[in-house]
Lab assay of single mutants.
Amino acid sequence: LVRYRTISKIPQITLNFVDLKGDPFLASPTSDREIIAPKIKERTHNVTEKVTQVLSLGADVLPEYKLQAPRIHRWTILHYSPFKAVWDWLILLLVIYTAVFTPYSAAFLLKETEEGPPATECGYACQPLAVVDLIVDIMFIVDILINFRTTYVNANEEVVSHPGRIAVHYFKGWFLIDMVAAIPFDLLIFGSGSEELIGLLKTARLLRLVRVARKLDRYSEYGAAVLFLLMCTFALIAHWLACIWYAIGNMEQPHMDSRIGWLHNLGDQIGKPYNSSGLGGPSIKDKYVTALYFTFSSLTSVGFGNVSPNTNSEKIFSICVMLIGSLMYASIFGNVSAIIQRLYSGTARYHTQMLRVREFIRFHQIPNPLRQRLEEYFQHAWSYTNGIDMNAVLKGFPECLQADICLHLNRSLLQHCKPFRGATKGCLRALAMKFKTTHAPPGDTLVHAGDLLTALYFISRGSIEILRGDVVVAILGKNDIFGEPLNLYARPGKSNGDVRALTYCDLHKIHR
């Protein structure tokens, strides 16, 4: 019993810090008490220290592992850092350059016999395009090294910054494609005289377009951006097909006994025919423009016929181009109408809503002055909100995010209106959640004399007048207030005048 009563005193000691020596009952000389009392004092002292730490809000209350900052290894790049964003855009520009100039170089340097010394005699450094290609190869190699040090988000939505895990993730992902696209074939085969082989191998750079397509997928929600990307894709495919079309004609031209190829026909049409040795002929500019003209006309199913396939190889390629053109029509131009419709969806919704308003007016036989006010209010409210119901949009977000959005939407009023000066951010967040926005066209009466005042109004834009009878008592403008002081009276009061809008007004109100 003594032991039980001794232990039962522990909660009292913990909360009230009572010393055991003052209790005459606990001072009985028993061996059990002498053993338990020192333990009680020690526990009391420890609990006292913990309570003191909690009340003082000291940093040592938290466990040590929670006080440590997340460790980022040296030379690790955050995937959302500004440097990584700028670097990704730079790589994107280099990939676009590669997609345009690599097929052009591979096709127009394929057994090209233009006048001038061969590239091997001039030297590697004197070729501007080769120098640019070398810079692109170096940048792609540097990009691989950067990807080995860039964080990523795993399946659990955690940012991984450990170098080993980053390397394994990159090896399992895009490393092989990036490595093949970054191989400097110019340096590996330079001086061997195989410019045709170098041009063909350099087309491996186009593998990076797969990554670019995935990154550009984030802009699919913007109709104008999608339309622009589709047109660029169409032009890029036409450019690639033009390079292939020229390569076919250029390879067949020296081996044909009869002059029936499209390059021969082009030379005869523009007065620059090929001679018996295969030299001469149109310039590279004429060849490229004509090839691009043929691919565009074939892809769009126009086909004027002034550039036509004559050999079997050219006919087979033309059939493939027609098939590609039909697929592009289905996948690209078939979506253009939907994209344009999405661009004008706001206008369509406006006309639909206006039609419903006019049908309501016609069905209920609203008189002319009231009908005009109804239409003007709808037009003004639509121009202010673009038909978007803010309350319906915010309803799907958590309250903390709703408060931040409301604070942002009402920031101008909260910053410049005098009653809100000096208020804490928590108070402003709470008030912003209570605001209701209303609009009024010129001549609209917001409050009639004798109406119950259940709200306090803040003028965000425009001006109003307060009338008693036919006498203008006051004219209020931006950041002015009218209405009933909230919670100042037990019952809502009545208006002693009319409140009429002089201009288009936007008002925020808080109800009782």
Rank of each mutant, 00 (worst) to 15 (best):
M179P: 01
A338C: 07
Y219R: 08
G305W: 01
Y329G: 04
E112I: 07
H162R: 13
Y170Q: 01
G280D: 03
D257W: 01
P118N: 14
S283W: 01
N265S: 13
I144W: 01
A381L: 12
L134I: 08
L394D: 01
R74T: 07
D404T: 01
D404C: 02
V132H: 01
I141V: 07
I332F: 05
C243G: 01
P118M: 11
S277W: 01
E314R: 01
Y219L: 13
A225W: 15
P419R: 03
K425L: 09
A432E: 03
V393K: 03
G116N: 03
L67S: 03
G116I: 08
I146T: 04
H439A: 06
M322S: 02
I340Y: 08
L241K: 01
S308H: 03
G249V: 01
I388Q: 12
G223W: 12
M256F: 09
L110N: 15
R429G: 03
G173A: 04
A224F: 14
L428V: 07
L401Q: 01
V131I: 14
C417Y: 12
A181R: 01
L413M: 10
E375R: 05
T352M: 11
G422K: 12
T295D: 01
T120M: 11
L109H: 15
A291D: 01
E252R: 01
V131P: 01
L94A: 13
A348R: 11
A440H: 14
Q68V: 09
K434H: 10
P117C: 04
L241D: 01
V307K: 01
I96L: 07
K272Y: 01
V131T: 01
A119Q: 01
H239I: 01
P118D: 03
V307T: 04
I361C: 06
L229Q: 03
T311N: 01
F83K: 12
I405M: 01
C427M: 09
L428H: 04
L394S: 01
H448P: 01
F363T: 13
R356Y: 15
I77L: 05
F171E: 01
M179A: 15
P442R: 06
P441N: 05
P103F: 01
N275V: 01
S283G: 01
T113G: 14
I244W: 01
V86W: 06
N368S: 08
W240V: 01
E114R: 15
H364I: 01
L134D: 03
M322D: 01
L414C: 01
F175Y: 01
V321S: 01
F228L: 04
P118L: 14
S277G: 04
L370F: 02
D88Q: 01
L201A: 05
I366N: 01
P118E: 03
L67K: 03
T300S: 03
L176W: 11
A155S: 14
L431S: 02
P118T: 15
C427W: 01
I260P: 03
A392T: 05
G280Y: 01
S297L: 01
K202C: 01
R421F: 06
A348G: 07
R362S: 03
N306Y: 01
H169G: 04
I177F: 07
E115H: 05
L266E: 01
D217Q: 08
Q353G: 08
I141C: 11
W89M: 03
Y80N: 14
G199S: 13
L431P: 02
R214P: 06
I183G: 05
F435G: 02
M251S: 10
L401H: 03
V321D: 01
P441E: 06
A107C: 01
